[in-house]
């Protein structure tokens, strides 16, 4: 564990807590893409298959349980909670996210660390996470006024993987044979997808004006 990875995990945890705060307290999911939440639940379900077979540390297992529990409960909230589901605008959240799943699955079958079920599922989860934010970014472009919590949620979610890139650089230089092209390339693509959001997020923060993404 290094400071970049810990900061990354804490930032990821913070993004989940901000979203739970928004949904649980103001009972609203306005501006939140259910499709991105469903993709993230699938990411965690396919990445943490080894949660009961390979014990790495209490921290590792605890965080996996938090990410699994929160992602599935957020999906449940938006789909089934009587008040929250009312603030979900299905007509705006139209990204065909199933079109993301198939290519990621095919790529995982072709490019993986080992052709076993768990390794293919793990690679699938890495590829899927890289593109999981797309429905959310598309929805933000259509959302007139993005509320602060939603903006913070997306920012933290993008920042966590950027911190992970620093972690991979650190581990590359400090650990021998630490090379993982699958996570490195996917993590870079994932972070680059946030580039324009980060730009507009900082602009709105600097000029102290409402966050607005150009359509």
């Amino acid at each position: 564990m290094n400071i970049f990875r810990l900061a990354g995990d804490m930032t990821h945890l913070a993004s989940v807590l901000v979203l739970l705060l928004k949904i649980h307290t103001i009972k609203s999911c306005a501006g939140i893409s259910l499709k991105t939440q469903e993709l993230y639940a699938l990411v965690f379900a396919t990445r943490y298959l080894d949660i009961f077979t390979d014990f790495i540390s209490l921290y590792n297992t605890t965080m996996k349980l938090i990410f699994l529990g929160s992602s599935f409960s957020i999906v449940w909230y938006i789909r089934n909670h009587k008040i929250v589901s009312r603030s979900y605008d299905k007509s705006q959240d139209t990204f065909r996210h199933y079109f993301l799943i198939i290519p990621c699955l095919l790529l995982a079958l072709l490019v993986n660390e080992k052709f076993t079920f768990k390794e293919v599922m793990w690679a699938f989860s890495i590829y899927l996470e890289a593109v999981a934010i797309l429905p959310q970014l598309v929805l933000l472009q259509r959302t007139r006024n993005i509320d602060n919590l939603t903006g913070q949620y997306v920012f933290l979610l993008g920042a966590y993987r950027a911190l992970y890139i620093l972690n991979w650089i650190y581990r590359y230089f400090t650990e021998t044979h630490y090379v993982h092209w699958i996570t490195w390339v996917s993590g870079l693509v994932q972070t680059l997808l946030y580039a324009d959001f980060f730009y507009y997020y900082f602009e709105s923060w600097k000029n102290n004006k409402k966050l607005q993404l150009p359509a």
């Binding site: 990875r5 995990d9 390979d54 790495i56 990410f67 793990w122 992970y164 972690n167 650990e175 993982h180």
Partner: peptide, 10 residues
């Protein structure tokens, strides 16, 4: 050890 090294991240 090698296995865990490659999958010790979240």
């Amino acid at each position: 050890a090698k296995k865990q090294a490659s999958k010790d991240e979240l």
